[in-house]
């Protein structure tokens, strides 16, 4: 069950020029949170911006949560300016997150940019269940790198890609699948990142019949399922195209059900 509560910020540090990691004491949310879920964060109490911002849960830590966010607009800039001890209105945990089969042996995680954030809790959980984790992290350039060391501790293998070739493999997050990494080796693929990345990965996994879970992003208002603003086109069980709520039925969907527009 989700809670609307006040958290207390315990840490808020930059990881690079754009990405911040915040730790928030919020025991109610923490005890119910699972990998791939998100929280709604109120960045300002004076109504500007008006809406809460959805931010994925990076990790559950004792008595609280770790979130990793990119400063992209007014709300996230306000978050970046907060300090330890500040209070923060939160709603969560929200959404349908990642799940895994205990009998799986080896899985692949693919993260692009800020989409890497929710993979922390997933990698940690899989690793804890003795499932071998391999990870690909995609960035635009070397200066954008974050979390590669943290994810490496739960990953048996980890590859970094950059669009400009300044670090790791030259290309996007799916480039390693063209030779370095064999998709057939995995029982399941998990991904979060920009839509073109998810679309490319879904195509690869669907054609080889490899189960694949995608965490999608959509502009959100309420985050609790009442406004129907944040929908994703989904092919339902009756093979009809419907719009499902990213905040309730998602953000994690199977690659087989997500319909990408051309």
């Amino acid at each position: 069950m989700p809670y609307a509560t006040q958290g207390i910020i315990t840490k808020n540090n930059p990881l690079n020029h754009q990405i911040y990691r915040m730790e928030i004491e919020c025991p109610d949310i923490a005890k119910e949170a699972s990998p791939g879920q998100f929280i709604q964060v109120k960045s300002s109490d004076d109504g500007a911006p008006l809406l809460n911002r959805p931010i994925s849960i990076a990790r559950v830590i004792p008595g609280g949560l770790q979130i990793i966010y990119a400063v992209v607009g007014t709300g996230t800039r306000q978050l970046s300016e907060k300090s330890a001890g500040d209070k923060l209105s939160l709603i969560g945990p929200l959404g349908h997150g990642f799940s895994w089969q205990p009998e799986n042996k080896k899985v692949l995680l693919v993260g692009g940019g800020i989409g890497i954030a929710p993979l922390h809790a997933l990698a940690e959980g899989l690793h804890g269940d003795h499932i071998e984790v391999h990870t690909i992290l995609g960035f635009n350039t070397k200066e954008d790198l974050f979390s590669q060391e943290q994810l490496a501790q739960w990953s048996k293998k980890l590859w970094v890609t950059t669009m400009d070739g300044t670090c790791g493999i030259h290309g996007h997050a799916c480039t390693p699948l063209e030779g370095t990494v064999s998709i057939e080796d995995y029982d399941h693929v998990y991904a979060c990142g920009p839509e073109p990345m998810l679309k490319a990965l879904a195509k690869i996994c669907n054609s080889r019949h490899i189960p694949c879970s995608l965490s999608v992003e959509e502009y959100m208002a309420c985050g609790i399922g009442v406004c129907l603003g944040c929908v994703q086109k989904i092919l339902n069980e009756d093979h009809e195209e419907t719009y499902q709520r990213v905040c309730v039925e998602g953000p994690v969907f199977s690659s087989k059900e997500v319909v990408f527009d051309d």
Partner: peptide
Amino acid sequence: VGNPPGRLMQTPGGLLNCI
């Protein structure tokens, strides 16, 4: 089924929607 995504946009003090 409603409108395709691109249903929301926040504006100063307001919210636009086309659900």
